[in-house]
Design a protein around this nucleic acid. Structure first.
Lengths: 146, 146
DNA sequence: GTGAAAAGATGACAAATGTAAACGAAAAGA
DNA sequence: TCTTTTCGTTTACATTTGTCATCTTTTCAC
């Protein structure tokens, strides 16, 4: 595996703010506060703290705009999503990832275009897919389960 | 959405131990210690602490076996996996989940059976799939992005 | 039965997280 | 200019998480 460009780990609370900034492209602390209020009862203080932490983690950068700061993303949403998804799946048993992905496919609202793209990916993969994928739940033990 | 039977949140470290216990069905503290050692340099103390926390969180229960405890799972691996995957995807923009799932499909090693099952799921979904899925990144704002 | 080995119980401690309150400076309105 | 509002900065504080070290209590081998 390539050593992935590690994006900073973001907490759930921080992620909420990032989504706002990713979508708007940039935002001031008060803009973020105003927008997040539709969803979370956080005080401005809380938002400021989270933004500061995101800057420290190098997930955001700031540019001054007179008295205040404008916050801009330093990592893309796509990259952050990829990393989070990867980290989640890294916890799972190799053998069981397929089942879990299947469940996600079932539960997620997908557009027709999404589905067509997935169908293309799967068709390609099928050709070289292994008969089975071994469980790797017991460290150092091959075929731990089943 | 139905109110999901909430399984306790497990940390990354705790999850590692759970995988061992799920796979073996049950294990004593020293068995877990021995097995985890192939992967993590944790002391027995660390393992005991994590097991205790898992019991407190009601992810595990114990039965006495003479001087020691046998740890048994109180939640299934499947349930825990579902919940973790759900929580991860809950963070993501509705509109972008499909793209992220597609990437996961590409990157994950899938068995032929996995792929066939996914193909079946997708074929079914396609019939009733929406043309597009709206972004929900800005709380309270419809079609935030694009 | 005595000492070493094995288990559980307790206590610790730093870093990360969620969630602010307070304080100080600057800008804007009266 | 005096006051209020608006920002950023500092400090705080309880929890959770990662990692152990110790202490205590059982056992098991001599």
């Amino acid at each position: 595996m390539a050593v992935t460009e590690m994006a900073p780990e973001m907490t759930t609370a921080e992620w909420e703010l990032m989504r706002i900034i990713w979508t708007k492209g940039q935002a001031s602390s008060s803009e973020v506060s105003a927008l997040i209020r539709a969803k979370k009862n956080w005080t401005e203080s809380t938002v400021k703290t989270l933004l500061r932490r995101l800057v420290n983690k190098q997930a955001l950068k700031t540019v001054r705009d007179g008295r205040r700061f404008i916050y801009l993303p330093l990592i893309t949403e796509s990259h952050a999503m990829d990393q989070m998804a990867e980290e989640t799946f890294a916890r799972l048993c190799e053998m069981k990832k397929g089942q879990e992905l299947t469940k996600l496919l079932e539960e997620t609202t997908l557009s027709q275009a999404d589905i067509r793209q997935m169908q293309a990916v799967l068709a390609t993969k099928l050709a070289s897919a292994p008969q089975t994928v071994a469980c790797n739940c017991l460290p150092g033990v091959e075929h731990a389960c089943c």
